[in-house]
């Protein structure tokens, strides 16, 4: 079947019952979404579908035909990181880093639909995602920074005369 991931269409040869996570990681060789529990309890596998954060470990691909899937790889690259990625780098918001892509995608979904989300909303939104290293304070800081960076990024092209 066909899957639209990070803006391009992929022909995937997999059992339609296969959870999206395995297809992303193995068939499409995308590393960011992680296996954490397979139960929807930890959020390590979080990606976006049609702008919403979902647990990819529990979402069979048969539900996803024609829908827009986005992973951390779709937010930017190591050479040209997107605002969310940039914010996590600037805040050094990782220890082992395993939970971080899931955090980023849940935060991205929030800020995309609600660019002015409050600090409290950010905290509440991240509740389904677990971090074991205790990086929570930095993750919150990074998402708040991303909120600002995303606004700047959104304004930049509109202004039309970005100084170099």
């Amino acid at each position: 079947m066909k899957l639209n991931v990070n803006g391009s269409t992929h022909e995937v040869d997999a059992d339609p019952a296969t959870p999206l996570l395995y297809v992303l990681r193995n068939d499409l060789e995308l590393n960011a979404a992680k296996f954490g529990c397979g139960l929807g309890q930890c959020g390590a596998c979080t990606v976006m579908v049609d702008g919403k954060a979902i647990f990819s470990c529990l979402t069979p691909i048969l539900l996803l035909e024609g829908r827009e899937i986005k992973t951390v790889e779709g937010l930017g690259t190591i050479d040209s990181p997107g605002p969310m990625q940039q914010a996590f780098i600037e805040e050094q918001a990782a220890q082992c880093g395993y939970c971080i892509p899931g955090m980023m995608m849940r935060a991205q979904a929030l800020l995309q639909s609600k660019p002015d989300a409050s600090d409290a909303e950010i905290q509440t939104t991240l509740e389904p995602n677990l971090c074991r290293c205790g990086t929570h304070m930095r993750i919150l800081k990074a998402v708040k920074r991303a909120r600002e960076l995303m606004k700047t990024a959104a304004m930049a092209p509109a202004s039309g005369e970005r100084k170099v």
Partner: peptide, 14 residues
């Protein structure tokens, strides 16, 4: 007991 919600996964038709 934890059960994940599927609100953002399932369309109303699904």
């Amino acid at each position: 007991a934890i059960m994940p919600g599927f609100a953002d996964v399932l369309t109303n038709d699904q």
